[in-house]
């Protein structure tokens, strides 16, 4: 493998996270718009924070969050703070996640997603000046949790190649 290919593998998490942001912007309207688009950047940040945090440093997470804020038109800093907080939580529990069965990791991801959803709800409620209904966000978070096993399989291929080739 040449140097250029290795570089691609190293920046794969960044590209995947940014791709996840672009996916959030596409009018996919899954099943007639009933199923919301999963928040893939959160899955990317979680996976790499557990298995290869060196490739997902805080500034990069901040960058992904800011990019999402700008692209979605939300208040700048909202998604950045949520992603940073999520990563910090993951890194605190990283020792527990490493080497565990994927079902356990999946459960851990679900807990992180739940906390992230609460923080987003609180931030948006504060910024709107009114208590927004939390229930409207449940669908998107559930879809994000549901797709994580499939995403983690795909991410693990990239991750293993990164370990082997770099």
């Amino acid at each position: 493998m040449n140097r250029a290919d290795r570089r691609w593998l190293v920046i794969a998490p960044l590209l995947l996270a940014l791709g996840g942001v672009v996916l959030l912007l596409l009018p996919l309207r899954l099943f007639g718009g009933v199923v919301p688009t999963p928040i893939i950047p959160l899955a990317v940040i979680f996976f790499w924070s557990v298995y290869e945090p060196d490739l997902m440093p805080y500034p990069l997470v901040f960058l992904v969050g800011i990019f999402q804020d700008f692209m979605m038109g939300s208040i700048v800093g909202v998604w950045a703070s949520i992603y940073l907080l999520s990563q910090w939580l993951v890194l605190q529990q990283r020792q527990y996640f490493l080497g565990r069965d994927q079902h356990v990791v999946w459960l851990g991801f679900a807990i992180i997603v739940f906390i992230a959803s609460l923080v987003l709800w609180l931030e948006r409620s504060l910024l709107n000046g009114t208590l927004l209904p939390y229930t409207v966000s449940i669908g998107q978070w559930l879809v994000t949790i549901a797709v994580y096993p499939a995403l983690s399989i795909a991410f693990s291929f990239v991750h293993e190649r990164t370990i082997l080739e770099t």
Binding site: P57, Y58, P59, V61, F62, G65, I66, I75, V76, G77, V78, A80, S81, L84, L85, Q87, W88, E123, L127
Partner: peptide, 17 residues
């Protein structure tokens, strides 16, 4: 580094507001 970036994020929120 995390605290700095978190503070930066919240500052950006306030600045946007």
């Amino acid at each position: 580094g995390l605290f700095f970036l978190m503070a930066l994020s919240f500052s950006m929120v306030l600045f946007s507001l």
